[in-house]
């Protein structure tokens, strides 16, 4: 046990996917940390960058193929329109439980003191520019920079 008696002091959450359920999971974890008085930082990499890309963040989808929890035949999941239908159903359910949309959630996270970082390598790979991304981003950094941000006792890292 460390000097904080094993207490979680900081959550470093890496988001590498852009399916709605993964984005929300990462956001809820980051917000939940702040609500408990735990620091939180997020690193958006690979497809996770879509969650902070202004042109894409409002069009994220639920995966209908390769998602056994939807209990839908894989063949059906691949048909045109099925993913859009599943997504709109999911969004309706989320609205019912007072879940904010992606952009509003980003604003909440930022106002709550969550640091939001974009992965430099993935930004270059997808040819994204800083102007394409959510305005209140804290910066575009390397994985090494992100590890440095997480230094200190009581830090935990999570990969989504």
């Amino acid at each position: 046990m460390n000097e904080f008696n094993g207490e979680v002091r900081k959550m470093m959450i890496i988001l590498s996917k852009a399916t709605l359920e993964n984005v929300y999971a990462a956001f809820v974890l980051a917000n939940g940390a702040r609500m408990e008085g735990i620091e939180a930082e997020m690193f958006f990499t690979f497809f996770g960058l879509e969650a902070i890309h202004k042109g894409k963040l409002e069009h994220l989808h639920t995966a209908t193929v390769g998602n056994p929890a939807l209990h839908m035949p894989t063949l059906l999941g691949g048909l045109p329109g099925v993913e859009a239908l599943a997504t709109s159903m999911m969004k309706k359910e989320m609205e019912k439980i007072d879940m904010p949309d992606v952009l509003e959630f980003l604003d909440i996270l930022k106002a709550s003191g969550v640091k939001l970082w974009a992965c430099k390598l993935a930004m270059e790979m997808f040819h994204y520019k800083k102007e394409d991304m959510f305005d209140d981003l804290d910066g575009i950094i390397t994985v090494g920079d992100f590890y440095k941000q997480g230094s200190g006792l009581g830090t935990h890292m999570l990969f989504v």
Partner: peptide, 25 residues
């Protein structure tokens, strides 16, 4: 916290400043 942001009484940033650490708790 979403309710707080829509309260018109306080925004999230100030809420965290007024009640540091775990504000709603």
């Amino acid at each position: 916290i979403r309710k707080i942001s829509k309260s018109g009484v306080v925004d999230i940033k100030e809420f965290y400043q007024l009640f540091p650490n775990a504000p709603l708790k």
